[in-house]
């Protein structure tokens, strides 16, 4: 994993570099520090023909270009690299970092010990993330993009997908939220073996079915929602559910 550090204060830069390097040397020797910069221009010129996997950026870089802009530039080159902000600015743009440049974390420079702990914690999560990306584990998730932030939703958490009447908007309902995106139900239906088209405008996840009511023609899901089911789907659903139970 390649790491870039950008911090304009020389002492803090040195401290940051030392802490991270010390931790990496013992625990993850494969980590490589490819650039320790004090100006965003250095990072930009590096980006022209190189790539890194993890960036530590100071928000208030002294040269007028603040960390957010630099992060946006990095994102343009590389949508998946981990970006971690380091700031002494308590009114940090928390949500903006998260959704605009998909920052992995941001650390506020407070007391010494808590800072080091947070720093290492963020570093570890970026390493874990890097390894996961390498093993292609993301295929077990349904991905939703909100701004630049990509949310991974485990398939088993999904209750159903539903189209709205007039647009190509699809609404996904899962354990921890409701999300909307553009797409086609037909493509979603084929995405996973437990997805089942119960109705013209709905795909349910068979993993979360609690009850099939043939008389009143609905399927009840684990979150209590009752989905209407078409007559044709009713004929297939029991079979599908059984098949699914056997496979699991």
């Amino acid at each position: 994993m390649k790491v870039v550090i950008c911090e304009d204060n020389p002492q803090q830069q040195k401290m940051l570099y030392n802490r991270l390097r010390n931790y990496a040397m013992i625990n993850h020797p494969s980590v490589e520090f490819v650039l320790v910069a004090s100006h965003s221009a250095e990072v930009l010129s590096y980006l022209e023909d190189h790539k890194a996997d993890c960036y530590f950026l100071d928000i208030n870089l002294g040269d007028g270009r603040n960390g957010l802009e630099l992060a946006s530039e990095i994102r343009k080159h590389d949508p998946i690299a981990s970006i971690i902000f380091v700031t002494d600015y308590s009114e940090a743009l928390k949500l903006t970092f998260k959704y605009k440049v998909a920052a992995l974390d941001f650390i506020i420079k407070r007391t010494e010990e808590s800072f080091t702990d947070e720093l290492i914690e963020a570093f570890v999560s970026s390493i874990t993330r890097y390894e996961q990306l390498g093993q292609n584990k993301v295929t077990n998730f349904f991905q939703i993009k909100m701004g630049e932030l990509i949310k991974n939703i485990p398939y088993e958490n999904i209750y159903y997908f539903e189209t709205s009447e007039d647009f190509h908007k699809i609404r996904l309902s899962e354990k921890n939220g409701v999300f909307e995106f553009y797409g086609k139900l037909k493509e979603i239906e084929e995405m996973h073996s437990s997805f089942f088209r119960c109705h013209k405008s709905m795909v349910i996840n068979l993993q979360n079915v609690v009850e099939i009511n043939k008389k009143e023609k609905y399927v009840e899901l684990a979150n209590g929602v009752r989905c209407p089911i078409s007559i044709r789907a009713l004929r297939n659903i029991q079979h599908k559910v059984n098949e699914h139970l056997v496979n699991d």
């Binding site: 946006s72 994102r75 343009k76 949500l95 959704y99 605009k100 440049v101 909100m146 701004g147 630049e148 539903e162 709205s164 609404r171 309902s173 354990k175 921890n176 409701v178 405008s201 709905m202 979150n223 209590g224 929602v225 989905c227 209407p228």
Partner: peptide
């Protein structure tokens, strides 16, 4: 956002996860 859209985000802390989830899911569109 970088793709040119505008994001409006409202985030708040809640006392109980489950209550809120039910409130939302109870009135699912279908």
């Amino acid at each position: 956002s970088m793709s040119g859209s505008t994001l409006i985000i409202i985030e708040n802390t809640i006392s109980d996860n489950s209550i809120m989830i039910n409130q939302i899911f109870d009135e699912g569109y279908s």
